[in-house]
Design a protein around this nucleic acid. Structure first.
Lengths: 146, 146
DNA sequence: TATAAATAGGATAGATTTGTCCGAAATAAA
DNA sequence: TTTATTTCGGACAAATCTATCCTATTTATA
């Protein structure tokens, strides 16, 4: 019953950490990231690759390389894009009770009750930007670990 | 990113199916249940055991045995109790981003945004009774499979 | 009491998710 | 061009979740 997969949790936190640093023109390594967000390093690196493939972050290979985010992208990237890059679109489709087809005409027992929750989650993910999350970390009102 | 585990999906549907039948004084077997809710039989049987241990349903062993629910319990049992019996209390505690401690004083980046979603889910689970779900199945407005 | 029918529960297998390891490829700097 | 550094990506390992199988135990009935 946890909302996000571990991969997604790490991905979100990593993206925030990268955003915080990119806003100060600092590139960061998977090692640093995993230490700062309290996640397994190699596994986190895999997730970062997924974020790179989805054009959410940029990777620079070779010496003095690392990960960064385009400053304009910090403002526009939404939580929903990060979740989608890692967990796919399973939030939006898929029946709460696993029916093959579940819609208004043939709903599962929790269809309409669930719809509200799903929509609330969807709105939240669509309306939360990386910028806002990064600012909250920078100002010390929220935290990436412990 | 699916809300419920498979075990929980099967458990909810099984409980509803048992409630529908108990309201007509019929006991049902795991075989019949798994056919009607489209779930693996042996696995479903395990989940039924958990529901029995949590006093949500009653099992009658031996010939002519099966599963049933006390009629008064059909009215009072809430979705939240079924979910709790199977998935534990991970809905209510547990940080969305996996922080060890995540509260007002030390929130994760999505803490307050998530709170709304969690509360919506929690309300839904707390305010939905087995009776209501069973009635909707009996009246044909919702379905347990396909 | 014997028998048949049913749930209980342990052992195990398969699938998926989570996590690790290591060599290949790329790149900046000496 | 060489070297050091760093991400990429494939192979693999561990843990968890899902699912199956088989035997033990219980119980109604003949």
């Amino acid at each position: 019953m946890q909302m996000f997969s571990k991969a997604c949790e790490y991905g979100i936190k990593a993206a925030i950490y990268i955003a915080v640093n990119s806003s100060e023109n600092k590139r960061v390594s998977p090692k640093e990231i995993s230490e700062k967000i309290d996640s397994p390093q190699a596994f986190t690196a895999k997730i970062l690759q997924a974020l790179v493939r989805h054009n959410i972050i940029i990777s620079v290979r070779g010496a003095y390389g690392g990960f960064e985010i385009d400053k304009t992208k910090i403002e526009t990237t939404k939580l929903s894009q990060i979740v989608y890059a890692i967990d796919g679109d399973s939030i939006y489709n898929g029946c709460g009770l696993g029916l093959h087809t579940c819609d208004e005409n043939h709903p599962c027992p929790v269809h309409d009750k669930f719809k509200l929750v799903r929509e609330e989650l969807r709105d939240m993910l669509d309306n939360t930007t990386l910028e806002r999350l990064a600012l909250e970390i920078k100002s010390g009102v929220s935290f990436l670990k412990t």
